[in-house]
Amino acid sequence: MTIDWGIIFKSIPLLGHGVVVTLQVSALASVLGLMLGVVLGLCSLSHSRPLRWIVAGYVDFIRGTPLLIQIFLVFFALPALGVRFDEFWAGVVALSLNSAAFVAEVVRGGVGSIERGQSEAATAIGMRHRQILIYILLPQAYRQMVPPLTNELISLVKNSSLLSVISVYELTRAGQAIISVHFVPFEIYTLLALYYYVLIKVLSWLSSRLERRLPTW
């Protein structure tokens, strides 16, 4: 077999646009997923039983169904209920909703692992449960939440390739477009793998730097 180096050199800049979209989708979805996930995680630690049940049900649903189906639900099923997104935002929403469930579990685990004396001391000065979660427990859990959240971010970036099925012009979709014109699957899929690999490496490196900078109490 011969490798078509010409198409590879031509593809590198063409895929650049896909990388930008992948980064945009991932950044938006991870920020939205993180915000929603923290809220859900704190709700799952609240004293309100209905609230805890709702979050538990949500997490259970997300974990129990394939992401691909969740993407289809957001893109194809929600419009039937009158909620319509274009491909890009459907992708962002689907990935955010998916990652929020996992972030919620990370928050619940991290906050739940803080020593009991902390919430007792805060209770004793009259702080309320919600205040204790937000001001006392959550900040102490940041550092230990970084590694699992990084894993979640890595999954999210990799999962964003699934958005190619709803024609979000991200990295994978951009590669497929080249393949469909030039029929060079070996070259392009190898190149895509490399692109993702480098993206993930950079993220892991940033995360370990962040983890080192966060204080241990």
Binding site: G117, A122, A124, P139, Q140, P215, W217
Partner: peptide
């Protein structure tokens, strides 16, 4: 009501952050 009682713990339980 609870804040009317000051409570000092054996293990201090200061907020480390």
């Amino acid at each position: 009501q609870r804040s009317q009682f000051g409570f000092v713990f054996q293990r201090f339980n200061l907020f480390p952050h």
